[in-house]
Design a protein around this nucleic acid. Structure first.
Length: 176
DNA sequence: ACGATGATGAAC
DNA sequence: TTCATCATCGTA
């Protein structure tokens, strides 16, 4: 059970995004611990990426993206949905990976096949914003030793970012 | 295909 | 201070 720390996230965003597939998102609620395999992510990388919140520079909302790697960036879209991102890359370089889909090991729970579904199910909201991904925070990521072959990873353009000009076609979405 | 629903950022 | 815009989802 090795927990992923700043070292893991403080690397190129595209690499981190792909390596997050097959890792496990852990959530502690009260005394209970749940975990889910990460099966789909999107990368948001740097100032130039028009689909990224950071492309216009630092603002009140996106400051977490400029912070240390390995902290959560949680924000509201469409007035009702929380999105869960993990900050990547060096400090002052705005980048993050959006966790889109997680898979419960048992099928006893709802399908979590959308970024707003998993945050709702896990009770994730702005109170996690800027928190480090640690056990103490109640939300963290572990490597359980599952090996993912490169051939298992598929890439495609990101979802819901058609406004992003030439950046909308980049294959920054990765899934198993 | 479209409305819900509110924070955000930019313009006025 | 007002306005258009959104890293979505559920219902039709």
């Amino acid at each position: 059970m090795s927990i992923l720390t700043k070292k893991f996230f403080e690397r190129p965003t595209l690499k981190v995004a792909q390596e997050l597939l097959g890792k496990f998102l852990f959530r502690r609620i009260g005394g209970k611990k749940f975990f889910f395999a990460i099966t789909e992510v999107e990368a948001y990388d740097g100032f130039l990426d028009k689909a990224s919140h950071a492309h216009k520079g630092k603002t009140a909302r996106n400051t977490p993206m400029f912070g240390e790697a390995g902290i959560w960036y949680v924000y509201l879209v469409y007035g009702m949905h929380n999105m869960l991102n993990i900050v990547t890359g060096p400090k002052n370089y705005p980048a993050a990976v959006l966790i889109r889909v997680i898979k419960p090991l048992s099928n006893s729970v709802a399908k979590l096949n959308g970024p707003a579904k998993l945050t709702k199910f896990l009770g994730i909201d702005k109170k996690f914003n800027k928190k480090p991904a640690t056990r103490a925070a109640g939300l963290w990521i572990e490597d359980k030793g599952v090996k993912i072959k490169k051939s298992q990873i598929k890439a495609s353009p990101r979802i819901g970012v058609n406004y992003a000009g030439e950046w909308k076609d980049k294959n920054y979405r990765f899934y198993l």
